[in-house]
Write a protein that binds this DNA or RNA. Structure first.
Lengths: 229, 229
DNA sequence: CCCGAGTCAAGAGCAGTGCTCTCGATTTAG
DNA sequence: CTAAATCGAGAGCACTGCTCTTGACTCGGG
């Protein structure tokens, strides 16, 4: 993809990658707030100040890891959506993919969906990768609508007021899908992340843990709730 | 409540309280991971090492703050439940109380429902206060069941397998409530926290933010989903 | 009343952190 | 070929959590 022009450029790209890898490794074992630039530099056999040639601050390193995490999760979700048969199966497959990735990479999940890092303001560059899962789900709804298997539940209330505009933004990415379906999709989306976070952060211990069956039940019921036959 | 026996005891209790207050203040402005023992000790005009007479480590201070946060939120939820009329109103009031408290104390909310603090293992003493909101909601269901306003939705699947045992634990705290209602209540509960977390952590920006109407819509729809007339 | 036991705040110190700045060495580009 | 850009290394600053020791204080039993 990038036949880095000069030797310096290639070395720089490679080292940048190695730094992120080492940081990711440390993230997985130590957690986000214990990620230490000095420890990363030690692992790479260089001096801590040299790291600042590649990432101007610890926060910038974290930003890079956040973007990578969003993209990794987004890619998983997209392939899950692509390889499924019916829209309902696709929806459920994306939900399962999110949970599976979260369980595989708990610290990276916590990094993007847990409490924001102290005093850290997410830069613009994160919002596009952050939307990939939602966009994948909207695509499934759009496809379900097109193929006629989306039956908007009649007992769903018609959104009113500000929600019309807000859901309108989503409707642009899922043309033809009724607003009340989109409203329920947002309910299902927030439930998905709430459930995964609860499981990962130990909030289900003593009740629904292990959560495999609860997860399948919840995603299934909410898919029906949305109207995905 | 405690007429601390000796002067030393009273001074100790008072200082313990002041330390927690200062720490909470710093938590609100700086966030959990920037909470510094030395800064707290500076604010109190004492030396950092003196703090260790009251809290053996930073993690123990955090644990105290976590328990206080769970109890504060739990108390809010319980009074919200108590002061409402119908079970449906009580359910919605508890949901609103959770959101309101979270918006008022975002850092404390992040402390208990966000990513767990690095390398920090929640001690036993936190699990009882952590359950108060859920117990309040279960009480509402139980009351709704007793007064006959709980109509289990007929399209809700009957829980099977492991979920029967898991929901059975909840059923002990809400006698008579059908398992399939409890399953949907867990869906609503996880949705509630997912939605609040999304709002607080900036995941709704660009879509459902501000979330007031979405919140009212979601909690209302899910109350119906559970079967609370 | 008094004296030993327990408790206290203070201070020094250790190992670690993010980050800045300077200094030579190397590589690139004109 | 030379000037500019980039690089890693090192020293150093202001922090952090935490430990240990020291001297002063308070408390309770004799």
């Amino acid at each position: 993809m990038n036949a880095g022009r000069t030797a310096r450029d290639r070395a720089r790209a490679e080292l940048t990658h190695e730094i992120k890898d080492a940081a990711r490794r440390q993230l997985a074992t130590e957690g986000a707030e214990r990620l230490s630039l000095r420890a990363v530099s030690r692992e790479l056999g260089m001096v801590s100040s040299a790291l600042y040639r590649y990432f101007p601050s610890r926060d910038d390193l974290l930003t890079a890891l956040i973007i990578d995490a969003y993209n990794a999760l987004g890619a998983k979700a997209e392939t899950a959506a692509k390889n499924a048969g019916t829209p309902r199966e696709a929806w459920l497959a994306v939900c399962r993919a999110v949970r599976a990735w979260a369980i595989e990479h708990p610290q990276e999940y916590a990094l993007i969906y847990g409490s924001p890092v102290a005093g850290y303001k997410a830069p613009e560059s994160t919002i596009e990768p952050a939307g990939r899962v939602a966009i994948a789900l909207l695509g499934i709804l759009s496809q379900a609508q097109a193929s006629g298997v989306l039956v908007p539940p009649e007992d769903a209330p018609e959104p009113a007021g500000l929600m019309v505009e807000q859901l309108g933004v989503l409707a642009e990415m899922a043309p033809g899908v009724p607003l009340k379906v989109l409203a329920r999709a947002m309910i299902a989306l927030t439930q998905l992340y709430g459930m995964v976070s609860f499981e990962l952060f130990g909030q289900l211990v003593g009740t629904m843990d292990p959560a495999d069956e609860f997860f399948a039940d919840a995603t299934g019921q909410l898919a029906t709730f949305i109207g995905i036959g």
